[in-house]
Write a protein that binds this DNA or RNA. Structure first.
Lengths: 357, 357
DNA sequence: CTCCTGGACGGTAACGTTTCCAAAGTTTAC
DNA sequence: GTAAACTTTGGAAACGTTACCGTCCAGGAG
């Protein structure tokens, strides 16, 4: 039933092969147009101060030779930082990161900037190496979704940095993030309002963001006069769906199982849902309520549509990119900013399951 | 209930500010270490032919000054192509593209290559501009998920190109793709096997891949002796979930509604499922069977878990990146290759709904 | 003791662009 | 009619690196 094994064929059409000929330079263009090097440069950059007739001769030469400016050489000149931004983040397969990447790509593209993705391992040392690499490439600015670990080595880099989603230690720089504490509070309040008092919260390991979400959770509980059972605050060893699934299964098998769960990350939400699908609730006890953090595709299509606390992730990426571009161009010289985007509760059903009896 | 408005504060901690001081160069290092420029260069690149004592003096100077090689200047030297690959693709929010990006990023990173993402508009002209831009940045190679439109302008670029997921017109270059026709055949055969004969197929507009999938569909029907009702071959105006949802709703309201649907793209599958959720099937007729192309997260969590034809997208990205790296380093000088990865049927339920009665 | 070999190092010429300065040509003002 | 000002153009220097070519010194052979 599976398809044939991976197959490899030489392609056999008769299109032009890729030729390895060297690319023409401005000097070639200058010779061809019978003008000086400086004139070509002027034409290429807007062409102010060049007679129309000369300019069109140069343009003709450019077209004939298929010349294209060598951005690398251009970026070598002092003051001319390369027109690329670096983006350092985790797993692109996570829609959260993918959305940030897409949004910043759009904004950067509008200004003619490319985006360089550093390869991002998970360990702090790998992140540091990747960042150093990118700085070596003379990017005009860095957008970083930082891991834990010290980032003070960025202080002397002479490149503007914007942190996304969470602050970094050891350096004062711009930061764009969502209101994690407010979102955690929102989710928890909502569950409390449905009558739940045993609300478990699942946390990815030691991330700044989930810490703030936990804080919102605690605040909401305290405000409602509900004491937090610390055994329901679950610090996972990993931020994966699998870890959340395992933890949820264990939670729900306890005699004093929670009646509601707050999954503080989209992958964790997935794990929680997987576990709940299998767990048969004790007789007389209904399906536990679930609220997730960060919206995800198909959330409204599941058997019980999933209630989430969400923020505008694309806006997060756009804001960060815009801010970084302004910093890079020295348009924005304010002191480092801290921009916090609001969260919002999206009710779909799973969070509105009332406490049974 | 929504959180407070977006809030902006200057950050007020007391970390080192980012200083704008110029970065040290090899010349600075040479002076500091009391050696010549060439020696520093030798040390930086492996250090063959330098006495240990000298080398360590240079390394000390590098550390003290925080020197880091300027990749831009390095890439300017002839023969030294920059160590970045370009990746040109569509919407990163689509897990298909995100997976390719992640996989190629990993492979490239292992070889010390960065990946530059060009800003990708949807129109062919925008794609062309983006590619030209990237070539100007002297990338060592291009991975392109091409739009329709002519790509012959790449022939003279002097940069290796690998096309991903679909071939491009007007140029002979490497291509890595999945077995679209085989996958389409697999999906259709499976539905035929459940007894379905009125199988609708939804197609995104004029993409090469969906065309091949349609071909597999036709082949399977013909082989089974089932005549294709052309009104069940739905060419959508857009490749979005919304377009698929609308089309499905219309299909299912017809008196001769299909009993099965083949959604030839992951976004289309989503649209189909959304529509089916709402459509009340005519009395006596069961829920229509659905097979999607490309797996997606949560597919197994839906009320009726979704059967899909899937291939290893990460492997697609890895293969493309590896091939491109080999081309860029001239390790691989074979004629252009066509690599086809197999597809596989993943049965989950929605494709195994038999024809009612 | 001299010559030669070879390793270690220093200096310099590119790479392709931008930017600045000076030269040439053209117009304007007196 | 000449000077001044402005516009257009050509040329050279610089950016930070690598590659190549000498030079210098140590040590071995004759």
């Amino acid at each position: 039933m599976p398809c044939p094994e991976r197959e490899v064929n030489p392609v056999s059409e008769t299109f032009p092969k890729q030729s390895g000929s060297a690319r023409p330079t401005m000097i070639d263009v200058a010779k061809r147009a019978g003008v000086g090097l400086g004139t070509v440069s002027r034409v290429v950059n807007g062409g102010a101060g060049v007679r129309d007739e000369t300019a069109s001769r140069v343009r003709a030469a450019i077209d004939e030779l298929g010349f294209q400016r060598n951005e690398v050489a251009r970026a070598l000149r002092p003051g001319k930082k390369s027109s690329s931004l670096a983006l350092v983040l985790g797993d692109l397969t996570n829609p959260f990161y993918a959305t940030i990447a897409k949004a910043s790509l759009e904004v950067a593209g509008q200004d003619g900037f490319a985006v360089v993705l550093g390869s991002v391992d998970e360990d702090p040392e790998g992140e540091r190496r990747a960042i150093q690499e990118l700085i070596g490439r003379q990017v005009a600015g860095l957008m970083i979704v930082p891991d834990q670990g010290d980032h003070s080595f960025l202080a002397g880099a002479g490149v503007p940095v914007v942190f996304v989603d969470r602050p970094a230690h050891g350096i004062e720089a711009d930061i764009v993030m969502v209101d994690n504490e407010g979102g955690g509070k929102l989710a928890t309040e909502h569950l409390l309002r449905q009558g739940h008092e045993r609300i478990a919260i699942l946390l990815a390991p030691s991330y700044y963001t989930t810490g703030r979400r936990l804080r919102g959770y605690r605040r909401a509980c305290r405000a409602a006069g509900v004491e937090v059972d610390e055994s329901l605050v679950v610090q996972l060893p990993e931020g994966t769906a699998e870890a959340a699934e395992k933890a949820t299964r264990e939670l729900m098998h306890r005699p004093d199982a929670p009646t509601a769960l707050f999954a503080s990350t989209n992958f964790l939400t997935e794990g929680v849902l997987r576990a709940l699908r299998e767990v048969t609730a004790p007789p007389g006890v209904g399906e536990p309520a679930v609220v997730g953090f960060d919206d995800f595709r198909m959330a409204d299509m599941l058997p019980t549509p999933v209630t989430v606390v969400a923020s505008d992730i694309a806006e997060l990426g756009r804001t960060a990119a815009r801010l970084l571009l302004d910093r890079a161009s020295k348009t924005d010289t304010r002191p480092p900013q801290r921009i916090v985007l609001p969260c919002q509760l999206i009710q779909r059903g799973s969070g509105e399951l009332a406490l049974p009896k």
